[in-house]
Design a protein around this nucleic acid. Sequence first.
DNA 1: CAGTGGTCTAGACCACTCA
DNA 2: GAGTGGTCTAGACCACTGG
Lengths: 237, 237
Amino acid sequence: MAKPPSLQQKIRVEIERKILSGAWAPGFRIPVEHELTARYGCSRMTVSHALSSLVQAGLLVRRKRGGSFVAEQHFQSMVLAIPDIRADILDRGAVYGLKLLSREIRKPKGDVEIWLAQDGNIIALDCLHLANGIPFALEHRLISLKNVPEAAEVKFSEEPPGSWLLGHVAWSQAENRITAVSADRASAKLLNLDVGTACLNLERRTWRGAARITQVRQLFPGHLFELVAKFNPAMPM
Amino acid sequence: MAKPPSLQQKIRVEIERKILSGAWAPGFRIPVEHELTARYGCSRMTVSHALSSLVQAGLLVRRKRGGSFVAEQHFQSMVLAIPDIRADILDRGAVYGLKLLSREIRKPKGDVEIWLAQDGNIIALDCLHLANGIPFALEHRLISLKNVPEAAEVKFSEEPPGSWLLGHVAWSQAENRITAVSADRASAKLLNLDVGTACLNLERRTWRGAARITQVRQLFPGHLFELVAKFNPAMPM
DNA sequence: CAGTGGTCTAGACCACTCA
DNA sequence: GAGTGGTCTAGACCACTGG
C-alpha cells in the first residue's frame, strides 16, 4: 500500500543512496542542477527542492558558483528522544504513579535559582515518579512564577510538572546536560537504592525567548533507564 | 552585516514567533495558504515552502482539507552532539593521547559479535583515550572486517578508531544507548577510579544499509564528561 | 462535493564567487 | 564575466478528506 513517491523524493533518495553507499564520497561534486533536470526530465524547482532537503539533513553543502558537494562530515549529531517521564512509563505498559514530596513557593535562593527567577518568586517541587509502584525517577524542579504565573495554582499532585508544562507553556529553547552520578544518601533512600549506585542525571533548562521558564534535575537509576538516540535517513535504504 | 532575509524566512520566523510565544497555541488552526499569500503578497509556493520547513521542525502539522495546525507536542526530541572523542578533547584545549590496550583479529564470539560480523571476522580493539595524560574514556570496539576490510591494515595506535572510521567509512544509520553504570574492577583500574564510581556508558551500533559496520562501548568517568543536547529554533527570537 | 495541501512547471531575476 | 545556486511567480493538476 505504499503511495507512489513524488519525483522530489525519488531524486532525494537516489542521491542519498549514492552518498550513503559511499559511491559519492565526501567532497565529491555532484551534478549541477541543470544536469539533474535533464536526467529526471523535470523543472529546476523540483531538483532544487530535493537538494535542499539533503542540505537540511546535513548530507550536502551547496556553494554558489561552486556547485553542490557531499558534506565532509556527515552526522556529527543525532536526534535524542527527550523523555516525558509519564509518557515513557505508559509506553512501557506500566502504571504511572506520582508522589509529590514537597511543593513550595518562595524567593529564589542561591545563584542558580536567582538566575532562573530574577526578581520574581519560584515554585520548587520535589517529586518521585513511579512505574508499577517502583521508584523510577527523582525530580527536583524549579519554575519561574514571573514567567509562568499560572503554575502557582497547580497542585502537581496528579499531573507531573513536566507534562503540565508541556501542555500549558510554549518554550523555544532548552539545554540538556547528561551526566552519571552516584546516588547520595537522600536520593538513594527515595529511589530505594544502595548509596553510591550509578544514576543517570539529566539537567534541563528551558527558555522562551529571553524569559526563563523552568529548570529540572531528574535522577534515574542506571539499571532502569537508558536514553536512545538514533539517526534516521529520510528514506530507508 | 545581516543579509536581508528572504520572504520565506520572514514568513517562517513570523509564524514561528507566534507559536513559540504562545499566541498560537497547540491545536490552533493557522490561516490557510491562500490567506497567507494575500497577507504577504506572494505566490503559494513561497508560503508552502515556509510552512514545510516548520513541519520539518515539528512545529506544524498539515492535513489536506483540514488545514495547518500548531503541533500538539512541540519538541519531543533534541539534537544530541555525538562526540568524536579526540576532537572533543582537543576542543577543550587539552592534549590528546591514545593508548592501545589490545588489538585482535578473530572469529566473532557470542551473540553480539556474531550479530555484527555474521560469517566474517572481526577486529576487536580496546583502547584508552587520554586528556593531558589523564584517562578520559575507555573504549571497546568491534569492527566487521567483512564490511570494512581495509580496517585490517590499520594499526590504531595513533589514530583512534572512531576518527579513522569517520573519515574512511560511510554509514547511514546508528543507534546510541546512554546509560549510567558503576565501574567494575578492571575499568576502574584503567580509568584510575575507585571501583563503583558512576560512569557514563555510551553504546553505539552503526550500519550502512543492511551492512553492519561497527559497534562500540565507551565508558566515561561521570565527573569528567557530560553530554549536552540543545534545541535550536531556525531563527533566534 | 468542495476546500485544502502536495506537487510540479517553465520561466525569471538576483547574488555570489570562481576562474 | 559567466556559471552556479537562491528565490520567486502565476499558474496547473491531483489526492485527500471533512462536511
